[in-house]
Amino acid sequence: MSQYKFLITSSPHIHSGESVQKIMFSVAGALLLPTLAGVYFFGTRALILVITATLAAVATEAIFQKLRGKPVTVWDGSAIVTGMLLALNVTPALPVWMVVVGSVVAIGLGKMIYGGLGMNPFNPALIGRVFLTVTFPVQMTTWINPVDGTTGATPLALMKMQGVPTDYYKLFIGNVGGCLGETSALAVLVGGLYLIYKGYVDWRIPVSYIGTVAVLTFILGKDPIFHILAGGLLLGAFFMATDMVTTPVTKLGRIIFGIGAGIFVVLIRLYGGYPEGVSFSILLMNAFTPIINRLTVPRIYGEVKTR
């Protein structure tokens, strides 16, 4: 009986089986829904964009890690998520090489220079997107109409520039111009709810974020339903404002994060120069995340007020 060698480790001796990989692949899986919606409405060019962006993101990460002599960890799935998110956040009319540039920037400048997974303060996909918006302003805002592929404006732009509303049903299903992945509110919702159900997304962020936009637009005399369904709010609220790495770890902090992002979106959409404000609102709140964390440290069990 004594011939065995037993493993000695510190407790606990069991593990939930949860892993970074599982989380990332579940997010990627949920992102397939808006991807499929994008492909349905915009055709194969959408598919090509998503695949290219993803491959470019993974390749960038691998190359960076190789160059620095670090172990290559692309199998953790986080680069896949970044690549997909970036593609879902660009116009389906974007030239393919540009999305590759976006992926390289997202992973390189958005993630690897900070030290890789878990270290980046800002959502990498949004870094990529903002870079593209600034560098290729024309291409990034050339929107196309679903199905026929003719150029057109997004519902938010129509509303902002010409005061033309788009009907809710179209917005909900996705038959409107806009970013590849934000066109169908339905697809985003189903994917997001799946992640909430799996426990990979805290409902507090999408609820406080979307709720704030709804309340504020209503108070300011705008149409809240339109503002929720149009543009990238849903995609941002469920998939980007909930990125674990760049959002607060406390529950209260997440609510504050959502409210803050909601306020920024409304400010930008109604008073800013851009018709859309989701990306900036999330990046801005990413910057506040460390402070929010510090200010919302929970009261511990048995903590007694000292002075």
């Binding site: 493993l7 593990h15 989380i23 997974l117 878990g118 790495v245 959002t247 770890v249 929970p298 511990i300």
Partner: peptide, 23 residues
């Protein structure tokens, strides 16, 4: 199984699980 540690992704699962409400 000996599980390889990875970088913290700040998922806050540990925060939610801690019965003392630590971080």
């Amino acid at each position: 199984k000996t599980l390889e540690p990875m970088p913290c992704i700040k998922c806050a699962r540990c925060v939610d699980a801690c019965p003392i409400h630590l971080l």
